[in-house]
Design a protein around this nucleic acid. Structure first.
Lengths: 188, 188
DNA sequence: TGTACTGTACCGACTAGACGGTTTAGACTA
DNA sequence: TAGTCTAAACCGTCTAGTCGGTACAGTACA
């Protein structure tokens, strides 16, 4: 039995949801407060400004990224497959946070982009430690990026889709097979 | 000797430039008009609303996509390599239009997303015609998507970068090599 | 040839509303 | 009593869109 999330957490969650579902334009302070079931004053009690709200989201993303790095480093399938596997949106809280932040990344906010750059660099280092060939490592990363960005732009599937249609849904298993072949070729 | 571009064309161009360089928030009607060397009234003479301005950009993108499909279909290196090769931002007008539209895609405007979906689907069909394996075709597309999205979010390099650093710049040649190996494995 | 009129292209001041943010007054509770 | 809020009024700024007006090229026609 989880305790009721604090108002601060609800605000951050509502901000994410609005960013994902309706885009940055719709994620106004009023809208976020309403979605969080909090008054505007209440929101501004926890986050002094919209900038601070965004900074809160970025902090959350960084924290979650650290946990992700640890999981990635010790995944039995290797970092490359871990990365691709988890890039297919699975509905984890980390996924949502990333996609929300991604929606913010094309704005004027350079702190979001900077955070992404750093997280990206760490992912690359981990994948490069798994797959030694830099080109293949880069290709794997780009593949994962493509998955994330598609999710960010074209909406997150409610289900963890398993069919591969030309409509954009992706068969994770077969993609992982492709990554496997790329990786084994590079390691050989 | 080219004739002076019309005001309408200049407006569309300025809209693209602002979207790419400063993001959707900065691409206000006033800013676009000023960048195009046109008054706000003049802009609104050609495009009745901001929505119409976006629609103009989408139309332009669709037209350019048709030309791209034709080039892609008859590229001697095959559709897959063509796609990855041209996904690395080369500064072509089509690249700029796509990246500009991409910056708009996370907004409320569903028409932009719809256009992207259709163009994406066509690209996928062409790549699938080249590489028969759907998984590999999908992987190649995602790789190209990653390249485009990275360009859209983290700025377009002024130069056609040739070095592969962990900073995100990509060595096109070695990536194409990876694609080659994936493709030949799939075709075999 | 001069005049009246039409349509196109464009200008720039203005308006209404949205948004971020502030402030104030007060309530609930640990 | 201090911390965590609510509710609502309010302010300055920004933005999309409106509106009245201008400049000019063409054209009909007397």
């Amino acid at each position: 039995m989880t305790t009721q999330p604090s108002a601060r957490e609800r605000v951050l969650q509502a901000y994410e949801d609005l960013l994902i579902n309706d885009g940055p334009r719709a994620a106004t302070l009023d809208a976020v407060a309403a979605a969080a079931g909090v008054s505007k004053g209440g929101l501004l009690y926890h986050f002094k400004s919209k900038e601070a709200l965004t900074a809160g989201l970025v902090d959350k993303m960084r924290e979650m990224a650290e946990l992700d790095f640890a999981l990635m480093a010790k995944d039995p399938d290797g970092c490359a497959k871990y990365y691709v596997r988890t890039s297919v949106f699975g509905g984890t809280t980390f996924d949502r946070t990333i996609v929300a932040a991604m929606r913010l990344a094309q704005g004027d906010d350079s702190t979001v982009r900077a955070a992404f750059s750093e997280i990206h660099a760490s992912w690359y280092r981990l994948i490069l430690g798994d797959i030694k060939d830099p080109s293949v490592a880069r290709a794997v990363m780009l593949l994962g990026d493509g998955l994330y960005y598609n999710a960010a732009l074209f909406g997150l599937p409610a289900h963890a889709g398993n069919d591969a249609g030309p409509d954009g849904s992706v068969d994770v298993q077969s993609l992982l097979g492709v990554v496997d072949r790329m990786a084994s070729g590079a390691r050989a």
